[in-house]
Design a protein around this nucleic acid. Structure first.
Lengths: 230, 230
DNA sequence: ATGCTACCGTACGTTTCCGTACTGAGAAAA
DNA sequence: TTTTCTCAGTACGGAAACGTACGGTAGCAT
């Protein structure tokens, strides 16, 4: 029973963790792998260790935007926790890495027996809902540079090194803006020396400065996490 | 034991409803009454009958935007269901009317005993999270006229008559835009004959047409509601 | 009846971001 | 090596919404 990198698993009581661990399976998640498709039954629930997944809300066929990031601090498939097995959102891997997964049915059975695990996951559900709500605020009121800063910070929180492997194209889809707008905004951050950009990835160079740009659009769900789980 | 207008209460099994009803208290909610303040303990959980409440996400001191509407289809205070007693969001009455309320502690006790009630509320939690996520999409990708149409439809779903009592000023705060922008957009809808506007309120005249304007930015959480609760 | 206040209509220059599109550079495949 | 593809930088006209502000009207209060 090694120490898990995933903070939810790490927060479990040893007894609860044992109950889960017999069912948990370690998997390597490659980039763009779909963990949940819109309105499809969720098969597995993933606890990322080093991977990061995006939760993307979809309208009709075309309109889509990222509403949340899930990394080592969380878990996918909250719909299972809410007594359902599907959601209109899409979830896929944004940054490749390791995760532990459990079958949705198995998780549901464990949850029935285990109140403290259920409570922990519900608290995370609250945190994640807060993240979605704050994304709605940022989308409605923040400038692109601030939203970009917010995304970089959230990704940075969930990565091991200061490195985030992402293309402008993908960032544009996540933020719901043009690819060209992302290029311009990232350039601005790089010229100020806050990040270093390479083809297909960026490195956080001055986190404090990026936090200053994001302002209060970053930090609310993070504070909720610390209060309820951390 | 009269039939409740609130659709969650109406969906309860008689036994479950009885358990709740001894604790439920009918209240008249005046405009702008605060049901939940940011990061303050929730005292009561409200099941609106004719009232409508706005859930507003707050960043720092100034930046705020509505992330959800709660009317006769739902319940406030989901944070209580998630095992917490507070949230960074603010909830207040947008359209005055009646509601039934229960003390947060009392609800929590009832939830412990009553699995089917808990399951129902959890399913509503899923629906409401979907609503927040779709708000994030609309804020990021829709034009103001579409967002306005979406808001009108959601309010219309929750009102008795076709009438919604709201000022441009308040709508502007909800949508996170200028008051003047709301005026212009509402004027456009009125000139097309889709709504009738008076000082401090508006009436839905051609719902189908408004749905067409909102497009796929309206309807996703509503479909989830029908699937899981309706 | 008069004044006050809240609410609505309108205007104008400005900012942000869009749509589109062309070019070059890095990395992988042939 | 040469080709091919993906990714990033740049440009330009245009749309949407902003900040600000001024004037008008409905309804309430005195």
């Amino acid at each position: 029973m090694k120490k898990h990198r995933n903070r939810l698993l790490a927060a479990l009581l040893p007894a609860d963790l044992n109950l889960l661990e017999t069912q948990l399976q370690s998997v390597q998640l490659e980039k763009r792998r779909v963990l949940e498709a819109p309105n499809r039954t969720v098969e597995y629930v993933y606890f990322p260790e080093t991977a990061i997944a995006s939760v993307v809300a979809v309208c009709g066929r075309d309109e889509r935007i990222e509403v949340g990031l899930i990394g080592c601090e969380g878990v996918s498939g909250l719909t299972v926790l809410m007594g359902d097995r599907r959601s209109p959102n899409s979830t896929y891997v944004q940054v490749e890495g390791e995760a532990l997964r459990i079958e949705a049915d198995a998780l549901r059975k464990v949850l029935l027996q285990n109140e403290s695990l259920r409570d922990l996951l519900l608290r995370f559900g609250h945190v994640f809902t807060t993240q979605i709500a704050q994304t709605a605020v940022a989308n409605g009121r923040a400038k692109l540079e601030q939203r970009l800063a917010r995304w970089i910070l959230m990704a940075h929180d969930r990565t091991v090194a200061d490195d985030v492997a992402i293309t402008h194209e993908f960032l544009a889809v996540m933020l719901g803006v043009r690819r060209a707008s992302v290029t311009v905004a990232l350039d601005a951050l790089e010229k100020k020396g806050f990040i270093a950009a390479r083809r297909g990835s960026l490195t956080v160079a001055d986190r404090k400065a990026i936090e200053k740009i994001a302002g209060h659009f970053y930090g609310v769900p993070e504070a909720e996490f610390e209060r309820l789980i951390g």
